Computed example of a mutant assay.
Amino acid sequence: MADSVSVKDVVQATHLDVYAGAEYLDKRRVTVSDISRPDLELTGYFNYYPHERIQVFGRTEISFAKNMSSEERLLIMRRMCAADTPAFVVSRNLQPFPEMLTAADEAKIPVLGSKLPTTRLSSLLTQYLDSQLAERRSMHGVLVDVYGLGVLITGDSGVGKSETALELVKRGHRLIADDRVDVYQQNEQTIIGEAPATLKHLLEIRGIGIIDVMRLFGVGAVRDRTSISLIVHLQNWDAHQSYDRLGTAEDTQQIFDVNVPKVTIPVKVGRNMAIIIEVAAMNFRAKSMGYDATKTFENNLDQLIQHNSDDE
């Protein structure tokens, strides 16, 4: 987890325009992902002013400020320029008023702009800051995009996770991370997985070594990150262990505060793990859309029992 993000990184990631204070972009840091729209502050109410947040000015704020005198605007803006205020951002290609530029320059705070509507801009900034400031955790496994679903393949070392991922890539799916997956919680329902910088687009195959998936298979074979929808745990076949044959067992694995659906697949010679994982992903999607083959089987079985009972 990063403690802070530079305003320069925010500008580059969200394509903001720099109206003033370009020389301060590296020095100013953002420590929280929340965004502030200073409506009450423009009226002079500063009791709960969140000065550590990026301050976003939309059409409402700019219009209100235009009805104030120049002296009032300058006084308010100077009060808004705290030591830890990262930046002022103006949406909708609106122009910052002169007093904002003056006060920001005095406090060495950048003034930025965007063509986006205020709501979309706030959402974009929050999403980026959430991803950068969220707590991170490393998990052992391989993350692959299968039919648009993020599938995290886990299992003991040597069980065949990377080889299965390679087969999936050859079948048209996309690799996100091999061996180590960095995960963070984006919101109450979503876990995002991505590769560490040193392992990006790389895959380790025992007997061959490290291969660059993007160079060998093209840019369509990789993704930078994805949400984790399903965990597939590969386990060496144990003849003494019973495995779910009907799909009635619903298992999950908790990552941070999110319970991610999980299936365990036994591995032995002759089983094509790539095809089985493809089917697991398609079956998961079908269940998400309301179709459950297990319930169909149970209904068919109930009808058969009922039919036999009627014949007696």
Rank of each mutant, 00 (worst) to 15 (best):
A22F: 01
P98Y: 07
A177M: 01
V32Y: 11
M139S: 05
T118R: 00
Q253S: 15
E99F: 07
V10C: 10
S122N: 13
M80F: 05
K66V: 09
I192F: 07
R136A: 00
A165Q: 02
V232C: 11
D257C: 06
S227H: 04
N93G: 02
D244S: 09
D212V: 09
M289H: 13
R59H: 04
I211P: 07
I231G: 02
I275Q: 10
E298N: 14
Y147Q: 04
M214Q: 11
L42K: 08
F284T: 09
M273D: 04
L175W: 01
I275F: 14
A65M: 06
Y48H: 11
K8Q: 12
T85N: 10
V159Y: 00
P50G: 06
I277D: 03
A249N: 14
L301Q: 10
L42Y: 04
F46S: 05
V32R: 10
M80C: 15
G58H: 11
N308W: 05
E61I: 08
W237H: 05
L168Q: 05
G148M: 07
G44H: 07
E194L: 07
S36G: 01
V279T: 08
E72F: 03
S70P: 10
Q303R: 15
A22C: 08
D39M: 07
S242F: 07
F284V: 10
N187D: 15
S4T: 15
I35D: 02
S70D: 15
T164S: 15
N300K: 15
K27D: 11
Y147K: 04
M1L: 05
E41G: 05
E278D: 01
V219K: 06
H307P: 08
G247I: 06
S288W: 08
I265C: 01
G113Y: 00
Q253H: 13
M214D: 05
S227M: 03
A83Q: 12
K268E: 13
S63T: 15
I35H: 08
S70L: 00
K161Y: 09
M77K: 06
E61F: 04
L75E: 11
V89Q: 05
Y24M: 00
A281W: 02
K8H: 05
I176K: 04
A87V: 04
F46K: 06
T102C: 14
K8W: 02
S122P: 01
A20R: 12
E278L: 08
V10W: 03
I255L: 15
T164I: 00
L101N: 03
D105L: 09
S69P: 12
V279W: 01
T102Y: 14
Y19E: 10
V260W: 04
A87P: 09
K8G: 04
Q241M: 01
F64A: 00
T102S: 13
P196L: 13
L129M: 06
K8Y: 11
S162D: 09
R73F: 06
R79T: 11
M80K: 09
M289V: 01
R285N: 02
G270V: 03
R245M: 11
P196T: 04
E135G: 08
F256C: 05
A13W: 02
E163G: 12
L143A: 09
E250Y: 04
V213A: 03
E250F: 10
K268D: 09
K115H: 15
D311G: 08
M139Y: 11
T226E: 03
S309N: 13
I210V: 12
D9H: 12
R120C: 12
V183I: 05
V183N: 00
E278F: 12
L74P: 07
H233A: 12
